[in-house]
Nucleic acid binder design. Structure first.
Length: 596
RNA sequence: GGCCCUGUAGUUCAAUGGAUAGAACGGAAGUUUCCUAAACUUUAAAUCUGGGUUCGAUUCCCGGUGGGGCUACCA
């Protein structure tokens, strides 16, 4: 790691020049800006108190010392308090040789055998997946890939919310108006069929409420007393009592949902190592609560209900067990956290869940801490923002939800149209063309979502997402395909030996050097992304790299036979750029086609 | 009311406390004998507001203000 060496030598310089022992962490070291000559920049302003000299003089002192004591540093320049270090061509050549021969470029070896348990997706079985789930799934899957590259074992888990009042609503509607239809009899995908009944329930429920309100009953009361909701609650009671008929229907309808989800997951390219079902875990957590009560970490109120009093931590009181002994969502989540910990003994547990549950996870961690669970410090809520549409927020009742399956299909069709218009698919067989359209359309969707900082709410404009120009997945895929094509051509022309040797080129073209720097930076970005857990960093680097390659290519002069040395070097750079683009796309879970 | 997140070109997004705040789309003007124009070049255009900390603030702190979320004995 050259940065570490620069820091170490800088400390040495400060000690030699000014007789002061410096902490390496206090030095500002960064990548030099693109427009300025240099590779790394030391910001010396913070050293002025020690040197008691002007910024320029201090930077020059240190630069001179470093140049004398580090063979990797070819030269330096000083602009105000910025010391820009220029690394030698030999360093970059060596970097290229070393890394172009390393298969797992940018990867770290496994550092901890204990896994990271990563929960994502977590669907409800009463309706199909929508755009919000897509953001969740893509973030979860990408994060898993990035964590793996950073030396973690990852267990991807999905907690399916397969019980509760919502599925009972769909079941009730099906009993009333279903006519025994099935996905097979209707040709409707299972999850969509269930969604249909959920919507049907909601419509009739609304009508009932309206009727009651017209009779002069207050709205809240009407919502509680409407016959349909009362009946749905009865279904839930029967389910909890394990009534055979109800259980049978529940199993059948959930089966439909799973079949549908599997297709959606498969198309999106995400998967799981283990699936937890809430129907099997919803009773967990009571023991933990009773244990906590015995330890005095929790309190029992007069009516018998049990609470966590978090008022001294700036939060409210949180109910954990009702007076009748039944549990709530939080109780259940305490239980599943413990179950997950017992199952895997993980180094950490990550939950990819939307930011509307920030408070929930805050409380979850605090309660676990009170219960003496040291693993609560290793729970991380990857909270992501909502996906908004140009027309406003997604509301299922107003029909403004973007369905995941519909969206992928639309993207596919647009990819096909655009590609055919440009004549890119003319030479492809029917099957190859379908694979290509699928790769491009999903690349567009995934990249569009992942390039945005997860924390922020984002705007999803379907029209813009299928634009294949600019900072988009297809642009990066296209660049990669071009590189592959270039390499193929070089190989057939005999310019690409088995292990392309790098010849002793004395001076790199500026664009070549820039290309190498981008690669170096990318490796750092991967390491950083592990810490920051941000696919957005990887995504934006991938674009930067793709754009850089295109510029590099434009700058490349026409090559002649006698320039074989340079040909080899450029082939190596192209190959390496291609490797990194593929790698970054893989980290994000985006496929790249060999040709377009 | 309280708590959390957020406010950057016309739009969608970037920017470990650093240099002239970057891209992309859209607008204006150009470029194709090389591998593939799904590309490249040039150009106009932005940090919500008022304080504070700092050699230096889009970034950190405090106040205001716009947007979003949470504040259920739902999950």
């Amino acid at each position: 790691m050259i940065e570490a060496k620069i820091l170490e030598k800088t400390c040495e310089a400060v000690k030699t020049l000014y007789g002061y022992v410096l902490n390496p962490d206090s030095i500002g070291l960064e990548n030099t800006k693109k427009e300025i000559a240099g590779d790394f920049t030391i910001v010396v302003f913070s050293l002025l108190k020690i040197s008691r000299k002007s910024p320029e003089a201090t930077a020059t002192d240190i630069g001179t010392f470093l140049q004398l004591n580090m063979p990797e540093i070819a030269s330096f320049n000083v602009i105000k308090g910025f010391l820009n270090l220029v690394l030698s061509d030999a360093f970059w050549m060596n970097f290229l040789v070393q890394n172009s021969l390393t298969p797992g470029y940018g990867c770290q070896p496994v550092r901890d055998e204990r896994p990271v348990v990563l929960e994502y997706s977590s669907p409800n079985t009463n309706k199909p997946l929508h755009l919000g789930h897509i953001r969740n799934n893509l973030l979860g899957f990408s994060l898993a890939e990035i964590l793996k590259a950073n030396g973690h074992n990852v267990v991807k888990v999905n907690l399916v919310n397969d019980r509760g009042i919502h599925i009972c609503k769909s079941m009730l509607a099906y009993m009333k108006w279903g006519n025994n239809e099935t996905p097979a009899s209707t040709g409707i995908k299972g999850d969509h069929l269930i969604g249909k009944y959920y919507v049907l329930f909601d419509r009739h429920y609304k009508e009932e409420i309206q009727e009651l309100v017209e009779k002069g009953i207050p709205k809240e009361e009407a919502e509680r007393r409407a016959p349909l909701i009362v009946e749905a609650q009865e279904v839930l009671r029967r389910w909890e009592a394990r009534d055979p008929e109800t259980t049978e229907l529940w199993k059948m309808m959930n089966g439909w949902a799973y079949e549908g989800f599997d297709l959606t997951y498969k198309r999106l390219g995400v998967d799981f190592d283990h699936i937890y079902y809430e129907s099997e875990t919803y009773l967990l957590g009571k023991d933990l609560v009773m244990e906590g009560l015995a330890k005095g970490a929790l309190v029992r109120k007069e009516d018998g209900s049990i609470w966590a009093d978090l008022t001294n931590e700036g939060l409210d009181e949180k109910l954990l067990l009702r007076a009748d002994g039944t549990s709530v969502y939080m109780t259940q989540d305490l239980g599943t956290a413990q179950l997950r910990y017992d199952d895997y003994r993980p180094e950490s547990m990550i939950y990819v869940v939307g930011n509307e549950q920030n408070y929930h996870f805050d409380v979850l961690k605090r309660v676990l801490a009170r219960l003496g669970k040291e693993y609560s410090d290793h729970i991380f809520h990857l909270s992501y923002g909502m996906v908004e549409l140009p027309e406003g927020k997604m509301k299922s009742r107003e029909g403004t939800v973007v369905d995941a399956d519909d969206l992928m299909e639309e993207m596919f069709q647009t990819a096909e149209e655009t590609t055919r218009e440009l004549g890119k698919a003319n030479e492809l067989s029917g099957e190859d063309a379908l694979v290509l359209f699928n790769t491009i359309s999903l690349g567009a969707l995934k990249y569009f979502i992942l390039k945005v900082d997860p924390k922020k709410n984002m705007m999803f404009d379907p029209k813009e997402s299928i634009d294949f120009n600019g900072n988009t997945g297809p642009f990066i895929q296209y660049t990669y395909a071009r590189i592959q094509s270039l390499l193929k051509k070089a190989a057939t022309a005999g310019h690409l030996p088995e292990n392309a040797k790098i010849s002793p080129v004395q001076a790199l073209l500026p664009a070549e050097k820039d290309a190498l720097k981008r690669m170096y930076n990318f490796r750092e970005a991967v390491a950083q992304a592990g810490k920051e857990m941000s696919p957005a960093i990887i995504a934006n680097y991938a674009f930067d790299l793709a754009k850089g390659f295109n510029q590099f290519y434009q700058e490349m002069p026409v090559l002649k036979e006698e320039d074989m040395d340079k040909v080899n070097l450029r082939i190596c750079i192209s190959k390496f750029t291609g490797d990194i683009i593929r790698r970054s796309m893989n980290l994000l879970g985006i496929d790249v086609p060999e040709r377009m």
